[in-house]
Each structure stands twice: as structure tokens, then as C-alpha cells.
Nucleic acid binder design. Structure first.
Length: 895
RNA sequence: GGGCGCAUAGCUCAGUUGGUUAGAGCGCCACACUCACAUUGUGGAGGCCAUAGGUUCAAGUCCUAUUGCGCCCACCA
């Protein structure tokens, strides 16, 4: 095995093993009634996406869970796929055609959509290829896309069912409108920017009171033409007597009422606010609540319309100036204050967006939310960490109707058709909703029906992800090779899925809606656990984003440090849902760990006689054939296994990763391998070091799949791949707290001796070996060469062992044991400054023993503390007293 | 404005239901390469666990308030 490099080389392994696994079909899941199912649906990344650190974290977590459950003998499915991401994708393609000087309008809808598909075919697999480099063991045979033909049928079906149930309706809504681009924008496409504006104070004369008026403040005076009320806070003493009175809207001389609403902020402006329901989202809500008129005063291009009186035809900002001048000349402009306001701007042309009233489609959410709230309250669906439950419930209990129509081209078109002959204004007559386009109008029979131009919100397809990916509702499409019966079986087997792993930002957008859809269409929860991980940030706590330039590209990290290093470092930093603060050096830890694994394995391979490792470990048991060190490392391993299982079960992945790290490096390598070195050829050590390495690799595999496979393949092994090797069984009888405590005592001794190493010119590690293996030839000769007193030390393990044996299990007092051994050590080592050091340590231990005694004297403690604690304290007390005496004697003898 | 989170070593963070001496990684200091690994090893320094109260036999852990930082949602007429 000498040909193995002293450095682990990820590049030689990763691609090789990934292809091996995929080629063997290990990622593919099929229902097996004999096995328990475990399934995860991937949060589908945008098809335009490239892998960023957030994806890396999200998918590493999923892969760990998947690999863990696969090894645990469950039938494990990880369903991959991508999201068509309506607006994001449309923008990307628009940008790409802009290079040819084209706008989407130049192409027309059909040709543009064809371009998007073309783009998707060419670039849409980038992110899935990147997931493979991460090691993600997705079932790629099942990869889905939210615009797949079958998936689109699911979407249309859901729309139709909800419509028939009366849960989808048409209504008006204020949207972000760019008057220049003449398009609706989603909130995230209309970023708010601060700008220096003015706050204008306008006087609205009171009807029937010639000198009376009420002053309102506004930043957009031109919208006053659409005012249909003035609102004040009902608690506001200044205006209380005006509530219900009428004012004359200046310029247009329309009469409007003064209404009361507690949403009005008494401290802002004058405390009275003009209400323009057609041009402001908050006013819109007021308008709905108080049943006001909605007067739209603008054309879609931002010019004033026929409701604007003499300002008709003016641009909105020109109209603003004209209106202000007219008000000033009428003495109705009280004052103008500078005011910083933040307004939405079109992300493309930076035009100030106009809140614009338009007709949209909605889903009634309250009826859907009911069961989804209950399921979480009852604990059928659990959030990890639990605090997100509150966030979820808070939102669900105040849920608003969901606007699902979007005025863009890329997406699922609404399955809504109109018959021009039957259609009547403002009614649903002539509207046909069907999952597939009907050939003719069902009522008049004409063939002139046409489809709604709008598309559905992207989330209207992704909320079906846990079951639509299984081809629900199993409607066969001509030309498709989907086997409906098989699909139904698979859905029955794998649904509800097990765990959803996602980021907090999309609890409302996605998680909550999936739960609602699950109940509505599957009559069952979509998943039982929701694991919410943190956001990946840079070292200063800023969210990673392109515009900030603080991106750490996971692919660069894989290139430089390896995929396992990336995965390990990310996981070890992710503590239970806290945000992850990253800098590139973080990945050195993962890389170094991989290298440590590599070199320890190389060492074992060099010293392993493969013919002897078949020996069953159990042979050694009961015969007392295992040495202290062997028993110790086995005990430590099984303690680790127990902890790792518990941590993974509670989604504390970082604990699992860090526990394995600490065990492998600081216990297995630093102590066990060093201790057995002098007698590494002994059969028991051969077996134990092999078993511990092999099993540790297995429990590390979910976290670091590549290096564990590489090493595992070099070791003697059973089966084709570590990926499908069984998760080790917990053998509780191997966990021995007394052995562990005893060894720790010995380590303390050795550490003390190491301090003396320089002046005594001895090898401290050898001392421990000497104490454990006093009769080995190597140790004996070493002892001869060194100072004779080392021989004294060889009795230490006997002392420690006797000590431990005297006490019943579980009552070992570390403090007492430590002190005892140090006393012997003090006798064995005749170096004065070291005595002082030891005396210090003993003093500390004595204080601890004294405090124990004091505590037992406290009646409240004895009465109220848990029994085990009291018993533990009592058990240690007798020994502590003896110890104190000896300590005093020892102290007198010190120089 | 509503909701949530965080504050522990120089830095980044663990610390499970309160329980004996608060841990890790990185960084720093000293020492060590004939040794599986210098991407290494050994040792060391470094903590009023943000502040003030409270509950308890016992508080880093639970409660209240304060200060500072951060996130989400709403709003900004």
C-alpha cells in the first residue's frame, strides 16, 4: 500500500465513485412492501439557477438524511427536479435575446415561449449537474420539472377543482405596475428605493361649513382625483366630531365622507388621510372594508384618464404639478414639507412603479388553512427547530387570499377559457374552467373560445410538488410513457414524504401552501417533519448575494478542497437552524479532516494483515482477551454510535458530524492507534482497529460520501459499496463507563509526563504503552534505555484498574480516582516543581470534595434534589474524606 | 408597528430536559520532523457565560427588565 499518496486527492475519487453509484442504480427507489419508506422531495431550484452556498447546505442536509436512512435499511427516495420560476426565467431569456436587439414583444408570445424552452433544454440541467458534484444521491430517473406536461395537467386540474368548489374567484387587486414597460411586477421585482420627495398638505373643505376644512397629507397629490373618502383614527380627539361628515373634494367638487379607521396613524402628517382605493394598497384595503368606490384615474401608460377631469391626458407627474398649482391658487395647499419616502422602482427601467388596480384571480385561503393549522397544532407535522411552528401558525391564522394570476408569459396559463358569444360583463357567464382545453363552448357550441392570457404564480405549481411529482392525478397524456397504475402505487407508497428540508424564507410561500394542498387533494399531510436550516451568510453576517460581491462559490470550494470538505465544513457549522457564517478558511477544517482520515487509513492498511480480520469480534468477549485500550476504543465507538443516531434523529447534524470528528481524530488516532503501535501485530489490535475504522467510515459516509467510499474499497469489505452497507448496530453492552473513566485518568497521567518530556528525554506515548503493555518486548527495551523509574509507572494501570473495580458501576468518582492516581504519581516522580504542580491540582480536587460534603450537609439539598444526584454525592463522600486526610499528609511532605 | 432570534475564549460558534472542574475549531505562544499524516503531533496562555434583578438546595441554562446586534412580516398616506 506504499503507493498511496500522503495526501487525500478528492479529484481522483469524486467523479469516479459518483458514476459508480449511479451506474449501479443505488439512487433509484422502488416500492418495497418489506421495507419502510423514507422519502424527501427536493425544494426544486430555479431552472435558471446555479448552485450557491444555500443550495449546497440545503442539499447536503438532505443527502445526509437520505444516505443515513438508506443505510438504515429503509427504501429511500430523493425526488429531484427544477422549478420553472416564471418571472426569473422570463427575465433571463429576455436578457439573452436582448443581445440580439430583440424584445419579447418583437417575437410574440409563442415564439418567445419557444425560446424559453430552447434555453431550458440547453442550460436547464446546469444546476442538477452541479448537485451531482456535491454528491447528491437523488433518484435522477425521476427528475421532474414544474412545466412537464403531466405536471401541468396537475396544475390545471387543481385550478379546476378549486374553482368548482368555489375557492377560486376573480376580483380586483392592487398590483405593482410599470407604466413604461406596461407590465405587472412582483413585489421582489419592484425593489423599494428611498428618494427625496415632498409631503403635501392639502385642505379639503367641509360641506356646509364655509370656513371649515380638514387637512390631509400626501406624497402623491395627483391621486387625490381618485379619492373616495378621508379617514381618521376613531381615537383621535381632534377629528372625532368630524366623523361621518362630508367634504368637498377640491378641483373635482365631488362629495366624499370622513370615515374612521384604527389603522390611521394619528402621529403622521395631520392624522387625517385621503383614501384612494384604486391607487394605493393600504387604501385599497380600506376601500374594501368600508365599501368605498374605486375610481381609477390613470391609463396604463401613466397618463391621466377620463376620470381626471381637466387633467385628462396629462402624464401623472405633469398632472401632479398642475394640480398643486391649482390647489395653491385656490388656497388649499397648506404647506409642503421635504419628506424621504421609499417607492417601488421597476427593476429594469427604474421607473417609479404605480400601484394599479386590476382584475386578478384569487384563491380563498381560510377554508384551506383550517386543516393545515390543526395538523401542526396536533403535532402531526413537526417543525425542527420548533420555534418555526409559532411563525407558521401566526401567519396561517391571519392568512389572506392568494393572488395567483400574473401578467407574464412564461408559466402555466390559467386553464380559463372565454366564449365571446356567451360572455357577459362582470359575471362568470361564458367562463369555462377545465384542465384541458375544451374543443367548443359547452353552452353555445361555438368554436371561438380563447384562453386567458395570464399565467399562474410560480408557487401555484410548486405547492403541489410532493404529489404532482408522482404524476397525480394520473391522467395520461397522449405521447407520454407514464404508467398511471405504477405511478399511483408509488405515490401510495412514498406519500406522505418524510422530511422537508428548507430555508425559513419560504415557510409561507411554499411550506404552508404544500400543507394546505396536501390536505385538500391528498387528504393527508405532505410530510411529517419540516427541518428549517439557517441562511448562509458571509463572515460579517451579510446575506450572500451577487450584488454585494461576497459570494463563496461552492464549485470553487469543491475544486480546491473537495466535495467532502465542503459538506463536512458546512454541516459542522450549521447548528440547529442558526444562520451559517462562512469564510473560505472554514473549508480547511473539512479538508484537513479528510486528509487525516486518509492517512490514518493508510497507516492501518500498511499494518493490517487482511487474512486475520475475519475473526469475529465476539470471540474476544467473555474471554477477557481484549486489552484496556481495545475495550476503551470500542466503548467509545459505541457511545459515539449512540450519540450519532440520536443527533441525526433530532436533525442535529452538526452534533453528529462533530462527534465523529472528535472521536476519529482525538480518540482513535491520537490515543488508540498510538497506544497499540508497539504491539500492532497482535490479533486483538488488528481486529479492533479494522472494525473501528470500518464502522466509523460507515457512520461518516452520509456526511463525507466520497472519501469513505474510497477508503472502504481499499479495506477488506463485504458488499459492493459502503453506500449500501448497513448502518452499524448499537451494542449497548460494549459501552463501559468505568473503562472510559479509567482511560481518561491514564491520559491525564500521560499528559503530566509529557510536560516532563524535554528534561527527561523520554517518549511519553511510550509511557502509556508501557503502563498498558509492560511485558511487550519493544516497551521493555525502551524502558531499559530510559530512566529506571518508568518501570514504576507500569503499575499505574493496575492501580487505576483496581480502583475502578472496587467501586460499583456508575459510582466512580472521577475526582477521587484522579487524586488517587496523582498521589501514586507524586510518589513515583521525584521532581520538586512537578510536585508543586500536582499539589495545585490536588488542592483543586480537594476543594471539589469539600464542596461535595458541604452540599450534603445542606438539608434542603438532601430533601429536594433528585435522588440520583444525592446518592452520587453520598457515594463519593466517604472516599473524599479519606482523600482529604491523605492530601494533608502529602502536603506536609512537600518541600 | 407586529413577530422572532442572538449576546459564552482574540475570532466563529457548541453547551439536549437546570446538577460535580463551561468545551471545540481557527488564531496566538513554546516544543517536536529516521515516526501514517506539517493539511501533523504535544503542551500552554486566554472566560465576572452582555447588564441588572428574580425563582431554586443549585442558573451559562428558567423568569422579568435593560442595552447592543440581526432576521422576517407589515407600513411609510
Amino acid at each position: 500500500m506504499n503507493e498511496l499518496s500522503t495526501r487525500y486527492n478528492p479529484k481522483e475519487c469524486e467523479d469516479k465513485w459518483y458514476r459508480f453509484w449511479e451506474g449501479k442504480g443505488y439512487f433509484h427507489a422502488r416500492p418495497d412492501p418489506a421495507k419502510k419508506p423514507f422519502s424527501i422531495v427536493i425544494p426544486p431550484p430555479n431552472v435558471t439557477g446555479i448552485l450557491h452556498m444555500g443550495h449546497a447546505l440545503n442539499n447536503t442536509i438532505q443527502d445526509i438524511l437520505i444516505r443515513y436512512h438508506r443505510m438504515s435499511g429503509e427504501e429511500t427516495l430523493w425526488m429531484p427536479g427544477t422549478d420553472h420560476a416564471g418571472i426569473a426565467t422570463q427575465n433571463v431569456v429576455e436578457k439573452s435575446i436582448a443581445k440580439e436587439g430583440l424584445r419579447r414583444q418583437d417575437l410574440g408570445r409563442e415564439k418567445f415561449i419557444a425560446k424559453v424552452w430552447e434555453w431550458k433544454e440547453r442550460h436547464g440541467s446546469a444546476i442538477t449537474q452541479q448537485l451531482k458534484r456535491l454528491g447528491a444521491s437523488c433518484d435522477w430517473q425521476r427528475i421532474r420539472f414544474t412545466m412537464d406536461a403531466e405536471y401541468s395537467v396537475s396544475v390545471a386540474e387543481v385550478f379546476a377543482r378549486l374553482y368548482q368548489k368555489g375557492l377560486i374567484y376573480r376580483g380586483t387587486y392592487i398590483i405593482n405596475w410599470c407604466p413604461r414597460c406596461q407590465t405587472a411586477l412582483a413585489d421582489e421585482e419592484a425593489p423599494h428605493q428611498e428618494l427625496e420627495g415632498s409631503l403635501y398638505y392639502l385642505r379639503y373643505p367641509l360641506k356646509g361649513s364655509p370656513a371649515g376644512f380638514i387637512t390631509v397629507a400626501t406624497t402623491r397629490p395627483e391621486t387625490m382625483l381618485g379619492d373616495t373618502a378621508v379617514a381618521v383614527n376613531p381615537k383621535d380627539k381632534r377629528y372625532r366630531k368630524l366623523i361621518g361628515k362630508t367634504v368637498i373634494l377640491p378641483l373635482l367638487k365631488r362629495q366624499i365622507n370622513i370615515i374612521a379607521d384604527k389603522s390611521v396613524d394619528m402621529a403622521f402628517g395631520t392624522g387625517a388621510v385621503k383614501v384612494t382605493p384604486a391607487h394605493d394598497p393600504a387604501d385599497y384595503a380600506l376601500g374594501k372594508k368600508h365599501n368605498l368606490d374605486f375610481i381609477n384615474v390613470m391609463h396604463p401608460d401613466g397618463r391621466m384618464n377620463e376620470h381626471a377631469g381637466r387633467y385628462q391626458g396629462m402624464d401623472r407627474f405633469k398632472a401632479r404639478q398642475a394640480i398643486l398649482e391649482d390647489l395653491r391658487s385656490e388656497g388649499l395647499l397648506e404647506k409642503v414639507e421635504p419628506h424621504v419616502l421609499s417607492a417601488g422602482h421597476c427593476y429594469r427601467c427604474h421607473t417609479i412603479i404605480e400601484p394599479y388596480l386590476s382584475r386578478q384571480w384569487f384563491v380563498k385561503m381560510k377554508p384551506l388553512a383550517g386543516p393545515a393549522i390543526k395538523a401542526v397544532k396536533k403535532g402531526e407535522i413537526r417543525f425542527y427547530p420548533e420555534r418555526w411552528k409559532k411563525v407558521y401558525l401566526n401567519w396561517m391564522e391571519n392568512i389572506q387570499d392568494w393572488c395567483i394570476s400574473r401578467q407574464i408569459w412564461w408559466g402555466h396559463r390559467l386553464p380559463v377559457y372565454y366564449c365571446p358569444d356567451c360572455q357577459a360583463q362582470d359575471s362568470d357567464k361564458g367562463i369555462i374552467v377545465a384542465s384541458l382545453k375544451p374543443p367548443k363552448c359547452p353552452s353555445c357550441g361555438c368554436g371561438r373560445i380563447y384562453q386567458d392570457e395570464d399565467v399562474l404564480d410560480t408557487w401555484f405549481s410548486s405547492w403541489l410538488w410532493p404529489f404532482a411529482t408522482f404524476y397525480w392525478p394520473f391522467k395520461i397524456i397522449s405521447g407520454s410513457n407514464v404508467d398511471a397504475q405504477k405511478a399511483e402505487e408509488e405515490l401510495g407508497y412514498f406519500y406522505p414524504t418524510s422530511t422537508l428540508v428548507t430555508a425559513p424564507e419560504i415557510i409561507f410561500f411554499w411550506v404552508a401552501r404544500m400543507i394546505m394542498a396536501g390536505f385538500e387533494f391528498m387528504k393527508a399531510i405532505p410530510f411529517s417533519d419540516v427541518y428549517i436550516h439557517g441562511t448562509v451568510r458571509d463572515i460579517e453576517g451579510k446575506k450572500m448575494s451577487k450584488s454585494l460581491g461576497n459570494i463563496i462559490d461552492p464549485l470553487d470550494i469543491i475544486e480546491e478542497y473537495g466535495s467532502d470538505a465542503l459538506r463536512f465544513s458546512l454541516i459542522s457549522l450549521t447548528s440547529h437552524g442558526q444562520d451559517v457564517f462562512l469564510s473560505e478558511e472554514r473549508f480547511e477544517q473539512g479538508r484537513n479532516f479528510a486528509n487525516k482520515i486518509w492517512n490514518a487509513s493508510r497507516f492501518i492498511l500498511m499494518n493490517l494483515d487482511a487474512s486475520r480480520i475475519k475473526v469475529d469480534l465476539c470471540q474476544f468477549f467473555g474471554k477477557g482477551d481484549l486489552d484496556l485500550a481495545d475495550r476503551w476504543i470500542l466503548s467509545r465507538f459505541y457511545s459515539l454510535l449512540k450519540n450519532v443516531g440520536r443527533s441525526l434523529g433530532g436533525y442535529r447534524l452538526n452534533e453528529a458530524a462533530n462527534a465523529i470528528y472528535g472521536f476519529f481524530w482525538h480518540e482513535f488516532c491520537d490515543w488508540y492507534l498510538e497506544i497499540i503501535k508497539p504491539e500492532i501485530n497482535k490479533e486483538r489490535h488488528q481486529v479492533v482497529m479494522y472494525k473501528v475504522l470500518e464502522k466509523t467510515l460507515r457512520i461518516l459516509h452520509p456526511c463525507m460520501p466520497f472519501i469513505t467510499e474510497e477508503v472502504w474499497q481499499l479495506l477488506p469489505h463485504q458488499g459492493d459499496s459502503i453506500m449500501i452497507a448497513p448502518w452499524p448496530h448499537l451494542q449497548g453492552n460494549m459501552i463501559d463507563a468505568r473503562i472510559e473513566s479509567m482511560m481518561e485518568t491514564l491520559f491525564d497521567i500521560v499528559k503530566t509526563i509529557r510536560n516532563l518530556r524535554a528534561e527527561l528525554e523520554i517518549d511519553a506515548q511510550l509511557v502509556l504503552s508501557a503502563s498498558l503493555y509492560p511485558h511487550s518486548r519493544g516497551v521493555r527495551s525502551a524502558i531499559e534505555q530510559n530512566k529506571s523509574w518508568i518501570a514504576n509507572l507500569s503499575c499505574l494501570s493496575d492501580i487505576a484498574m483496581l480502583d475502578a473495580a472496587k467501586r460499583p458501576a456508575g459510582t466512580v468518582s472521577d475526582a477521587t480516582a484522579d487524586a488517587d492516581v496523582y498521589l501514586h504519581l507524586g510518589e513515583a516522580i521525584d521532581i520538586s516543581h512537578e510536585r508543586v504542580k500536582i499539589a495545585d491540582k490536588i488542592k483543586k480536587l480537594a476543594i471539589s470534595a469539600a464542596s461535595k460534603e458541604a452540599r450534603l450537609k445542606n438539608r434542603e439539598f438532601v430533601k429536594k434534589a433528585p435522588r440520583e444526584i444525592v446518592e452520587k454525592e453520598q457515594a463519593g463522600l466517604g472516599e473524599s474524606r479519606r482523600l482529604l486526610e491523605r492530601l494533608e499528609r502529602m502536603a506536609r511532605e512537600l518541600p
